[in-house]
Nucleic acid binder design. Structure first.
Lengths: 265, 265
DNA sequence: ACTGTTCCCGTAGGGTATACGGAATCATGG
DNA sequence: CCATGATTCCGTATACCCTACGGGAACAGT
């Protein structure tokens, strides 16, 4: 109770409450304008660039004016997050099958992170409880529940998939951000650090890596990441589907191959 | 090449290079002392509290003195990260079975994050290339390779598991940090926001959530997270083990083309 | 005492969030 | 036209942050 202003929930759900006032001095801005400006600046120059001073300057008002629209910068960031979560446009399609729904979710979530890399700077442990956040939970729970999983496992499965998708989406976004911020690709970053292998890497202390290296098991960072994502996500989805179709047995050779991948395609 | 000082790799691997100089004024501190102080402060008050001024003050020297030991604050953070990665003490145990190794990795990684919650503020997309980071890669690759997975899938599987474990370890750490920082448990945070369900939640727009709720499918945040972690990790491990079941033999030394990329990423 | 080397650190500059209180601007009623 | 109430607008002040630069201090060896 200490810090909770109680003002953030009405702000998050402001679009379901068209209540307007007619008394007093009319506002020059709106909450939406402030949130949109914050997103625009954070997209361009990072979350820390979206300072109250910078947002206000972009909107042509003084810094303190923003505080009549949002209670604090932390609340503004919550509003920005829920805004882009909602902008994914996750909508339940009862016709689509399970894997198609998950692929849709993964593709939109990855695109969202790449478009708004500052999302990786925000913790979602206590997320903004707005329409965007709830739309995500509804979408994933509906997708899993439609499979007919036991009640106890529905939310487990939805959360496991969500966490996995977010982890790789954040990684991609971070990679894209570093590329544009530092002007250097991950590939050239590794090349620049070639000294690691030449001078510091101890072959005897790392036999498994050395063996895998000699066997050609390492590829570019991008391939590794994308491969791990498709591989792992397919394992999760296979396991979830299998637990609901006991008749179907596992086929060891069947792995993540084209046609079943869940990335944005 | 623009920004790379070339000084960070020698610092990361400083313990393999006991080279000492005897000329010039003897130092009052050491790189280890600076790194340790940084970790201590970040543990107590967060990563942003571990400023150059604060670390210097804790060590009883002027701020600028630190720059004799580390090139920049970003490099200091890299050193702090690799230090705690190494402190997990991941050691390869050929006797243990696959699931025991992964459980060991997960337990140590989670404990590390809870002890050093500031890790969640650090991106590991371009990680510190030091002993701690390499020990982790060696450990996971050794664990997966021992199963006898095809070369092409070893790193995929290792990375998928690592990403999944880190995602939940970060979540736990973030939760612990928020609890101690805000003095409020996640449970009471949710209770405080009960207005969401009473006033803003639209039942018709969220049928799947509503159904699951009425069926008793939601539990405390802690139970949900822990359940999702165990459930998802087991699906990953099941799938990996299953894909190798028939052959059941490890061949680490298989011949293949040499690695054609910069390094294990 | 001199030299080479290294460590130590003061200064200066351009950033950040927000509490507080007063000024400005509107609709309305008389 | 003026008074009133409600609301928006914003200037000020505070205490932090990182690090480039360059000069002074302290040591070993001769």
């Amino acid at each position: 109770m200490a810090n909770f202003s109680g003002r953030i929930l009405p702000l998050l759900w402001r679009h379901t409450q068209p209540a307007r006032r007619t008394t007093g001095r009319p506002p020059r801005l709106s909450v939406d304008a402030v949130v949109t400006a914050g997103i625009r600046i954070a997209d361009a120059d990072g979350l820390e660039a979206a300072s109250m001073a910078r947002v206000a300057a972009d909107l042509g008002v003084a810094t303190m004016t923003l505080y009549t629209y949002v209670p604090s910068r932390a609340d503004l960031i919550d509003l920005m997050v829920d805004e882009v979560l909602a902008a994914r446009g996750l909508t339940h399609d009862p016709e689509a099958d399970f894997r198609a729904k998950v692929a849709d979710f993964a593709g939109r979530t990855r695109a969202m992170h790449v478009a708004h890399p500052w999302l990786t700077d925000v913790s979602l442990v206590r997320p903004p409880l707005g329409p965007g956040m709830l739309a995500e939970r509804e979408f994933m729970i509906a997708a899993v529940a439609a499979l007919g999983l036991p009640v106890e496992r529905v939310n487990r499965a939805a959360l496991a998939i969500t966490a996995f998708v977010y982890a790789f989406a954040r990684e991609d976004a971070e990679d894209a951000r570093l590329r544009s911020t530092s002007g250097q690709s991950t590939e050239s970053w590794w090349l620049e650090r070639n000294e690691l292998w030449e001078r510091w890497f101890d072959v005897e202390a790392h036999p498994a890596m050395t063996t895998l290296w000699n066997a050609g098991g390492f590829h570019s960072a991008e391939e590794q990441t994308q491969g791990a994502f498709e591989y792992g996500l397919n394992l999760l989805l296979d396991g979830i589907e299998r637990s609901v179709q006991p008749g179907r047995q596992a086929e060891p050779g069947r792995q993540a191959e084209p046609g079943r991948q869940a990335g944005p395609g």
